[in-house]
Design a protein around this nucleic acid. Structure first.
Length: 277
DNA sequence: GGAACTGTTATGAA
DNA sequence: GTTCATAACAGTTC
């Protein structure tokens, strides 16, 4: 489901729906979701704690509980949180239930079961696998052009998998990488270290702008993403290449094409986006 | 029926 | 060290 803007949308929803609520009990119906911790231990750790805040870093959610405990949660492809009235029967794909006070149950649903949760002391939260080496947030403040120039120069990887690698820039996924490469007129197979400073400046501006706009539109819903309020995002209506294979390029009119790059479907314009050597 | 697809990333091998 | 394919899983599409 989610890239940075979708996870941020979930974070904002959770902030309104569950911050201030106390955990009365939990039920885990798929143990791998809690990273191998025994469900009894998971429950014992959380019962009695209050959700004080929900933070985000890249595509990770950080639930801050009272008493210095953080739950690091990654939704992977299809994870989703939503609240229901206490006592609601969980469905087949509702893997974890958090029984909260004031008659609220928080459900974690994950059809493909890829998502993971980790309970750690606050101080260790940013050391959890994946977060330890995560790159800067794609914002004007955190993602400088100087960083882009030095970071891209270090790698000969194709720019598409380079951007999907969260250690370079946090929060980009398949949709926003295809969108911003098209906007920047960069071919997905261009080597990262072959991009000029002008191209990197363009790419940087497009990434920051796109992520900002997508967040304002509550994210992109193409398969299953919903906000914590159970609503679809609206940014799918703004996409310029993703899901438009065969349709005309909005810049030159040539039909968009699709290929595999690093095992991921990649939509691009063969005329506007050319490989540099 | 079944092969190939899908907003992701940890892992192990080359 | 870097880069790459595969696996984890279920549902939908062709």
């Amino acid at each position: 489901m989610p890239e940075g803007p979708e996870v941020e949308t979930v974070r904002r929803g959770l902030t309104r729906l569950v911050v201030g609520r106390k955990v009365l009990g939990t039920e885990v119906r798929w143990e791998k979701t809690i990273s191998g911790m025994a469900p009894e231990e998971f429950d014992a750790e959380l019962v009695g704690r209050t959700i004080e805040k929900v933070d985000r870093r890249g595509k990770y959610l950080l639930f801050r509980f009272s008493g210095g405990l953080t739950m690091v949660s990654h939704l992977r492809m299809e994870g989703a949180y939503y609240t229901v009235p206490a006592g609601t029967e969980p469905g087949k794909h509702d893997l974890v239930t958090f029984h909260l006070d004031e008659g609220i149950d928080l459900f974690y649903r994950d059809t493909r079961k890829f998502g993971r949760m980790n309970l750690v002391p606050d101080a260790d939260a940013l050391q959890v696998a994946g977060l330890a080496k995560i790159g800067p947030e794609p914002t004007e403040k955190d993602l400088s052009l100087a960083y882009m120039v030095s970071e891209f120069a270090k790698s000969r990887m194709h720019v598409k998998p380079f951007l999907l690698d969260q250690s370079h820039i946090a929060g980009l996924g398949n949709i926003y990488v295809d969108e911003t490469l098209w906007q920047s007129q960069i071919h997905p197979l261009t080597a990262a270290n072959k991009l000029s400073e002008d191209e990197l400046a363009r790419l940087r501006e497009n990434i920051i702008h796109e992520i900002t706009r997508a967040t304002e539109h509550h994210g992109t819903t193409v398969h299953s993403f919903t906000t914590a309020f159970g609503e679809a995002g609206e940014f799918q209506n703004e996409l310029q290449v993703y899901g438009r294979v065969g349709e005309p390029c909005l810049r030159c009119g040539h039909p968009l094409e699709k290929m595999k790059v690093a095992q991921r479907g990649t939509t691009y314009c063969p005329v506007c986006q050319v490989v540099k050597d």
